[in-house]
Computed example of a mutant assay.
Amino acid sequence: MNSYLLLAIAIVSEVFGSSMLKMSKGFSKWMPSIAVVIGMGSAFYFLSQSLKELPLGVAYAIWSGVGTALTAMIGVFVWKENFNVKKALGLVLIIAGVIIMKLSTGSSA
């Protein structure tokens, strides 16, 4: 399976698990708590599989950066959290950092 597809699955799994953390109410609700474990377990499994071909620094930068951006957007759209210029700038800088990390590898992996 394509290493970037595995990484994308890892990102979606991590975002799902992080979103369930909010719903778990500090692990006091058992269904969302189980979903956290499944989401995070899947995230680390698929991240580990993507690392068979991808450089660690690049994969982790993409995983954490894209995951952070998606989680922030879920916070805004689902949980009605505040979105302002500072948050937008932070997300732009994260995405720019991920792009720079990818360009720094000089490989097509």
Rank of each mutant, 00 (worst) to 15 (best):
N2Y: 04
N2E: 14
S3A: 15
S3I: 03
S3C: 08
L5R: 04
L5W: 09
L6C: 07
L6W: 05
A8N: 09
A8E: 03
I9L: 02
A10T: 00
A10E: 03
A10I: 03
I11P: 01
V12T: 10
S13N: 02
S13P: 00
E14M: 07
E14H: 07
E14K: 08
V15M: 05
V15H: 00
V15Y: 01
F16P: 00
G17N: 00
G17W: 03
S18W: 04
S18N: 10
S18M: 12
S19P: 07
S19I: 08
S19Y: 12
S19R: 03
M20Q: 07
L21M: 11
L21K: 00
K22F: 04
M23K: 13
M23N: 07
S24Q: 11
G26Q: 06
G26K: 11
F27V: 12
F27N: 09
F27R: 09
F27D: 06
S28G: 12
W30V: 13
M31N: 12
M31C: 03
M31S: 13
M31A: 15
P32K: 08
P32T: 05
I34N: 09
I34K: 04
I34Q: 00
A35K: 08
A35L: 14
G39K: 03
M40C: 09
G41P: 08
G41Q: 05
G41K: 09
F44K: 03
Y45I: 10
Y45H: 08
L47M: 11
L47V: 03
S48P: 04
Q49H: 05
S50C: 06
S50F: 02
S50W: 02
L51I: 11
K52Y: 06
E53P: 10
E53K: 14
L54I: 06
P55I: 04
L56Y: 10
V58G: 06
V58M: 15
V58T: 15
A59N: 02
Y60D: 00
I62V: 11
I62T: 04
I62M: 05
W63A: 02
W63D: 03
S64Y: 08
S64Q: 11
G65K: 10
G65F: 05
G65L: 12
V66Y: 06
V66D: 01
G67H: 05
T68I: 14
T68P: 09
A69C: 15
L70A: 08
T71P: 01
T71C: 01
A72N: 12
M73A: 14
G75L: 02
G75Y: 00
V76F: 12
W79I: 02
W79R: 06
K80Q: 13
K80V: 05
N82F: 04
N82G: 07
N84M: 05
V85C: 07
V85A: 13
V85D: 02
V85I: 14
V85K: 12
K86G: 11
K86Y: 14
K87P: 00
L89Q: 07
V92S: 14
L93N: 01
I94Y: 04
I95H: 10
A96W: 05
A96S: 14
G97C: 04
G97D: 05
G97H: 04
G97Q: 05
V98G: 03
V98C: 12
I99K: 14
I100D: 04
K102W: 05
K102G: 03
T105K: 14
T105H: 10
G106R: 11
G106W: 10
G106T: 11
G106L: 09
S107K: 15
S107M: 14
S107C: 09
S108D: 12
A109R: 13
A109K: 15
A109M: 15
A109Y: 13
